[in-house]
Design a protein around this nucleic acid. Sequence first.
RNA 1: CGGGGCGUGGCUCAGCCCGGUAGAGCACCGCGUUUGGGACGCGGGGGUCGUGGGUUCAAAUCCCUCCGCCCCGACCA
Length: 486
Amino acid sequence: MKEPKPMPKETITTRAHDYNQWYLDIVREADLAEVAEVVRGCIVFKATGYAIWEMMQRELDNRIKTTGHENIYFPLLIPKSFIMKEAEHVDGFAPEVAEVTRAGGEELAEPYVIRPTSETIIGYFYSKWVRSYRDLPLLYNQWCNVMRWEMRTRPFLRTAEFLWQEGHTAHVDEAEAEAETLRILFDVYADFAEQVMAMPVIRGLKTEKEKFPGALRSYCIEAMMQDGRALQSGTSHNLGQNFARAFDITFTDQHNTIQHCWTTSWGVSTRLIGALIMTHSDDEGLVLPPRLAPIQVVLVPIYKNEDERARVMEAVERLTADWQGRLRFKVDDRDNFTPGYKFNEWELKGVPIRVEVGPKDVEKGSVAVARRDMPGKAGKQFVPQAGLTDYLLTLLEAIQVALFERALAFRSDRTATVTTYDELKAQIERGFALAYWDGTTEEEKRIQDETRATIRCIPLDQPEAPGICVYTGRPTSRQVIFARAY
RNA sequence: CGGGGCGUGGCUCAGCCCGGUAGAGCACCGCGUUUGGGACGCGGGGGUCGUGGGUUCAAAUCCCUCCGCCCCGACCA
């Protein structure tokens, strides 16, 4: 059989031509979301996009529960005065909070803000719940929506309203809070990103300039998108005693002395959907890793007439008999579209595997199997009907691994160590620049002004040998990653 | 919020400069022929031209307001 080259999708701008437009084209064509033009900066999560979020939620929620946390839910509205209580926090969020000033037909005595994050209202309640060291730790998480009035928005990556989970914990001392912060970073976020999203991430510490307003330390996972830019994909904060002081979260310890708790907070959001798109997808459309794909296998029956249709559908019934519960699949039996149209449509929507069953397959006892991560002839082959289910399950795993490996290789290729400022400027055009750093926050800002790149993080994996700071020339043992960021 | 671009059937856009009965392709509906990489023929439906105001005998077209989207900056999960 002659295999034509994958046809370029005329509805999708190529990545090389315009990466931003490509991203928007994918979101629209794969039917993930729609810009809600009647509500500034907001999107409608369409069925496929929301299904991906549900898959993410399931995997994350499992990890959050297995690390000992319980789900809980706090109000959407927060008294405005709460937000004002932690100095750094106010400065960080004041410009982007939306306020409710009227309700019930009259002005409210105290306005509410629509939560941009819930540290403050949770802090208020934690202070009521904690009396003794025996009440600690508090290990809670909430799934909710939040609102931040961002100036510029993009579907999934930055929207005025977004969905996320925010974990909030309280502990007896710094060591326990720090252990919690890191455990979430490694065992929940990094593990999820790499094992489920097939997206390699760098585990790191934020600089003072980049940390969460009000935090003692912020940790993050950073991923590289296909244009070489960095995307912060999750954050985990050790809040120290800052919020405990602001909200008077205190406990009596073993020695009968009153102490402030140490709290943490951590979150990942629907931004991960944007990360997923920009990590794996190509000019043909969305590419979904099997573990997150709402549909893992789509089966397209092919026939010319009623007789063929009957024979083909009989084979389809037989082949899919034991798929239920083992594969997430769909049989595309719509008769108002041609097979070629369906191939393109499912490719666009990122389904990892397509199985084609036609009259010739019925005769020969075969099926055609095409894998999405390898468009065109390279990814399509004929396999025997016998043992098909196991074959598909194995192939799904292979695709999952291949996507991770490909993304990892891409990142490695676009990451380089730089020793001079000129090298740094050149490297951030391509991707991540690893550099020794001993500068101040002021110097960090100056570099941002000059290059539009920021320090994404101080990787937790640090080199053995010390080096020379790329900017100040001072000797240091600390290496950081510079990159342009989303 | 600053600079730039753009809002016309569901989508992509033409028409605007030079005011005079709103168009094309795709999509959609019906019928028939088709179906292994985006099928074809014939027939058909669908638009207060983003919003509000102004100029004019007459506004998609000219002027102003507001809203929204896209790109580039400053802010951010």
